[in-house]
């Protein structure tokens, strides 16, 4: 197991590469979902204000 994490002496380069890329993958999923959630909240507000107008 420790040889796996040691990565033949390249741990300092391999693991940060994987960590950064996977962080960007997860952040993209989070950002996309948040964009949709925000657009839905905003659309609901717009509907409510249209309904409230005379």
């Amino acid at each position: 197991m420790s040889t796996f994490f040691y990565m033949g002496g390249y741990a300092a380069f391999v693991w940060p590469s994987y960590a950064l890329t996977l962080a960007i993958v997860l952040l993209n999923v989070l950002w996309a979902r948040r964009a949709l959630a925000r657009a839905r909240v905003e659309a609901r507000r717009r509907l409510a204000s249209q309904a409230g107008a005379p």
């Binding site: 964009a35 949709l36 657009a39 905003e42 509907l47 249209q50 309904a51």
Partner: peptide
């Protein structure tokens, strides 16, 4: 997912916004 957000943000027609929500 992003296109849905973007399309919803641009839409002004109440009818389909209601359907989408």
């Amino acid at each position: 997912v992003r296109v849905r957000a973007e399309v919803l943000r641009r839409e002004r027609s109440a009818g389909w916004i209601r359907a989408a929500l």
